[in-house]
Amino acid sequence: MNTILVTGATGFLGGAVTVNLLKKRENNRLLLLVRGDSPSEGLTRLQGNLAKFGVDASLLNTLTAENILIGDLAEPERFTDDARLDAVTHVMNCAAVASFGTNPYIWKVNVEGTFQFARRMSLVSGLKRFIHVGTAMSCAPEANTLVTESELNTLRDQHIVEYTWSKATVEKMMTESLPNLPLVIARPSIVVGHSDHGCTPSPSIFWVFRMALTLGKFMCELEDRIDVVPVDYCADALELLLTAENVDKSIIHISAGLHSSVTFAEIDKAMAKASGQIPVAETYQKVNYRELAESKKSFSSLFGPCNERIVLRAMNLYGHFSKLNVVFSNDKLLELGMPPSSKFTDYLHRCVTSTKDATIAELMEVDFK
């Protein structure tokens, strides 16, 4: 039986992974790193997050305080001396400050704390695999390309946000400084929604599409492609990588690839159909940031009560990503037997339904914490 340590189980992707592992608990012992003052408090937070994925209460109640390792990657020294770590056979490291804001903990958690944690786990003699979840954007991709799974060397000025730079940095540190760590770097592309539950688990990034199409203008062309996968597909892929044989111990994309990536025009049509509106294609304008800023007086009427400065900053950041027009190769994952992802447009209607009563300002809070 494997003993699997999951970090980030109270988050979006980590929660989806934990749901998968919990359903196969007869084959796994689970140890879940959770922030909190006590195991019972951590368990309550964890169960609340997993419930968003539609998990039955009877299954949630199989988790106990014994499954909880209280700790925080911001302060790894507070949990890395726990003797239970020495029995871990597999690590699924999903924890991170996944913010496109200026959160001061980005570097402390994503680089310093993550590296200290990985170094501690590299000393565990029975550790078979350490899956580190990064982001496909860590490679600072060149626009209009099919991005392959090979890049570890980037510079700070190539990165639009501190988050992707932090992920790239810790990947390089672990690869170069921890030769005994059985490291696999998994880089998901853009994770949006859930195939069955829409944005109920998290509205992360979905609001960007809603915002741009509501405004009728953005920094990309409608024919530009974007590589989006649902969180449950990403979790399934991570579960496969955890124990699959012959896994390339370097970088593996979890992405839509050429088969399942979609254009913004396709998203526009699917969004209009789901919301009962007319596609914006005929009136859509590709604009620059200055032109977006000129529209700020209309933000409150279009998006609901909002902070215009934060909305503009979000538009600038996500606008740069949107106009990259990149697709991430998923050849390695497919070779391991993983089926292609569903398309974003296949389940987008569930994202629309699950967010219809929320304002854009409310939805975007998760990405600017």
Rank of each mutant, 00 (worst) to 15 (best):
D367H: 05
I254Y: 02
I106P: 07
L363C: 03
S329T: 14
N49D: 11
N153E: 14
A96C: 12
R156M: 08
T18C: 12
R156W: 10
S38D: 10
A265I: 10
Y233C: 11
E266C: 10
L73K: 13
P179C: 08
A235V: 00
D357Y: 06
L43M: 15
E223K: 11
L240G: 02
F206V: 03
E291Q: 14
E245D: 08
A274V: 10
V191T: 11
K332W: 01
N307H: 06
G8F: 05
N61T: 13
E142G: 10
M92D: 13
P203T: 02
G14Y: 00
L238W: 01
S329I: 15
T359K: 10
V184E: 02
T102V: 11
I252H: 05
S295D: 09
M92R: 09
G71C: 12
T164Q: 11
A83V: 14
H194C: 13
R309F: 09
L215T: 02
A361D: 09
A256V: 07
F303G: 01
L181E: 02
I185V: 15
K249I: 06
K296M: 10
V97W: 07
R156V: 09
G198N: 08
D236G: 12
P279R: 14
K23M: 10
A274F: 07
L317W: 04
A98C: 08
R84D: 08
K356M: 05
F79Y: 12
